[in-house]
């Protein structure tokens, strides 16, 4: 057979194969459409049964419903319930083995299935789920899965202490991303003391900045002394973070260094200080901000103008919480 014949045959085989795959997918879609009515009915029956059980009715149900369908129904009902009903539904789910199914999927070989399982566990938030999530965060082979597990824990307020979190995510040897920042912020209210201790470690400045930023979310007024000290830090990034954190924390003592920040030599710090003043509704800062309308830096001038609009009482405009950009 000549080279050209080879090409013709190979191409024809490829075309045949891909056509068969495609037709199979069309068939799959067709069948799923045809069964849609039955599937909808089943989903409705599952939903009804769970709602009745949550309401305390005795229900005799056919145990032929697949676990996945149950899982889907439960994860749809869960966000619509509150308090005791929610707890009861979770208990029922545990009894039915739906949770077990999720935990099983969380061991899947496929990264995307494991992440799906993480999302279900995040929603459930029961003790078994939290335990498994911690395990995954600590030892899953994919960094992305560990990160997702960390989010799920963060959303449930169950992150391990910050030092541990950063170690598990191998974070400290790289630059912080926005996601790391989010994790630190959700860890801050859980471990306010550890966050302060963490600052005493040997850290890259980029990380120190983010930890200070997270202090703002800790609801811990004990952080105020640390912020006070850091407000004189030679690194302008740190001073910026102090402004953001102080604005978030809302401690009255912070006003002093926010006012100083308005005259900081570095424009970025002045910018953050303006933002902080707006967030705290610092009327006292208005004259200083008015001065900043003539700042040499364009961004500071623009932000100052915007801030004055927000700080000065205009009849029908309520001052908005300024974005801490």
């Amino acid at each position: 057979m000549s080279f050209y014949q080879d090409i013709v045959v190979t191409t024809a085989l490829c075309a045949g194969a891909i056509t068969i795959v495609f037709l199979a997918l069309v068939l799959r879609r067709y069948l799923s459409e045809r069964n849609r009515a039955r599937r909808d009915e089943r989903d409705a029956a599952i939903t009804r049964s769970y709602l009745q059980r949550v309401a305390g009715h005795k229900v005799s149900e056919a145990d032929t419903w697949p676990r996945r369908a149950r899982l889907k129904a439960i994860s749809r009902i869960l966000p619509l319930l509150r308090g005791g009903e929610r707890t009861r539904l979770l208990q029922i789910a545990e009894l039915d083995g739906v949770l077990r199914e999720t935990l099983r999927i969380s061991h899947s070989l496929y990264r995307s299935s494991r992440i799906n399982a993480i999302q279900s566990m995040q929603q459930f938030g029961s003790e078994a789920c939290i335990g498994r999530l911690r395990e995954m965060m600590a030892s899953d082979r994919s960094p992305r899965v560990r990160l997702e597990a960390a989010f799920a824990l963060g959303a449930n307020g169950a992150l391990p202490p910050p030092r541990e979190t950063l170690r598990l995510l191998n974070a400290l040897c790289r630059q912080p991303t926005r996601l790391d920042i989010a994790l630190l912020r959700s860890a801050a209210p859980l471990y306010p003391e550890q966050m302060l201790l963490l600052l005493e470690d040997e850290l890259q400045d980029a990380w120190r900045v983010q930890i200070i930023d997270a202090l703002g979310w800790s609801d811990n007024m004990g952080a105020i002394d640390t912020l006070d000290k850091a407000s004189n830090d030679p690194d302008p990034e740190i001073r910026c973070a102090v402004m953001r954190a102080s604005a978030r924390l809302g401690h009255p003592a912070a006003r002093r260094w926010i006012m100083i920040g308005l005259t900081d030599p570095v424009p970025a710090v002045r910018l953050q200080a303006i933002g902080a003043s707006v967030r705290l509704g610092l009327r006292k800062a208005v004259p200083a901000i008015a001065q900043l309308r003539h700042d040499p830096e364009l961004w500071v001038r623009l932000r100052a103008e915007q801030a004055l609009e927000q700080l000065e009482p205009v009849d029908d405009v309520t001052p908005q919480a300024a974005p801490v950009a």
Partner: peptide
């Protein structure tokens, strides 16, 4: 959405 309908119905 059959699940939502069922919840509302209940």
């Amino acid at each position: 959405d059959p699940i939502l309908v069922e919840i509302l119905k209940f």
